[in-house]
């Protein structure tokens, strides 16, 4: 038996909204440590990895590890019926083929809604992700990251992220011209959430398909800060820290041959 209760359905809704454009079917792996999910897009360019630890839940029970295979679009149909502050309980039997989602309206205890989603058998391999030391890490407000990518995507279908000791520069070039946004490292005293933190051992410049970078911005509502971890010629690791877990993307770069 698996049963997990989230005090705010919106947390799970935001997670699922963040993957809806690139990932069709995902396995949510439930164990005694919490719920995790790893999935690659069809083109094998982006990999999403999520973990919600047991502490994220107001109650949590998982007698036996199970994988809940879910169609993201169907799951969203159900999650969108909820109010953001509804209490969400997810339940599945060990050998069942359904995930039950129960929403309780915190302002109206007389209203309870319940949905059953058919589970899918998704054949999905987990990837072995090597431990990696990144030589450049930029941490910035997720809303700022989202704005930069949104603005530059209009100019070109490829965006270069250039991290140096004194700042980070995002550049796009396309048919209509080019554009760039530079951010200098700063610390807003008393406003840590707005600071631009840059830790660069070695300057790194990596290019990415802007469509996939846009995908990685969708998680901005999940956390106020995002960190971009880079190293030469390997995938960027883009991570949002959750209260009890993380939501991260790996994105394969475009490299000169």
């Amino acid at each position: 038996m698996f049963e997990a209760k989230l005090n705010e359905a919106s947390v799970f809704k935001k997670i699922v909204e963040s993957v809806k454009d690139g990932f069709k079917n995902c396995n949510f792996d439930c164990s005694e440590e919490g719920i995790s999910m790893e999935s690659m897009d069809d083109a094998h360019i982006a990999l999403v990895s999520m973990k919600l630890g047991v502490e994220a839940f107001s109650s949590y029970r998982c007698d036996r590890s199970i994988s809940l295979g879910l169609n993201i679009e169907s799951l969203l149909k159900v999650l969108r019926t909820a109010n953001n502050n509804d209490v969400l309980t997810m339940r599945a039997e060990d050998d069942g083929d359904l995930l039950t989602l129960v929403f309780e309206d915190s302002s109206n205890p007389d209203r309870i809604s319940e949905y059953n989603l058919k589970l899918l058998n998704i054949d999905q391999e987990h990837m072995s992700i090597p431990e990696q030391e990144y030589t450049a890490t930029v941490t910035l407000p997720s809303s700022e990251y989202q704005r930069i990518i949104r603005d530059l995507t209009q100019l070109g279908d490829s965006i270069t992220i250039d991290a140096a000791k004194d700042g980070v520069r995002f550049t796009a070039e396309g048919d209509i011209g080019s554009g760039s946004v530079s951010l200098k490292a700063n610390t807003n005293v008393g406003e840590d959430e707005k600071s631009i933190d840059i830790a660069v051992e070695e300057p790194v410049a990596l290019g990415f398909n802007s469509k996939y970078l846009t995908q990685t911005c969708k998680a901005a509502p999940l956390a106020p800060r995002v960190s971009l971890n880079m190293c030469k010629r390997i995938p960027i690791f883009i991570s949002y820290k959750l209260q009890a877990g993380h939501f991260s993307f790996f994105l394969a770069p475009q490299i000169s041959e």
Binding site: E125, I129, P130, I255, S256
Partner: peptide
């Protein structure tokens, strides 16, 4: 010209 790399160039299935 730059070539889009695949995640499979870096990560292998477990």
């Amino acid at each position: 010209t730059k070539k889009q790399k695949s995640m499979m160039d870096f990560f292998k299935p477990k």
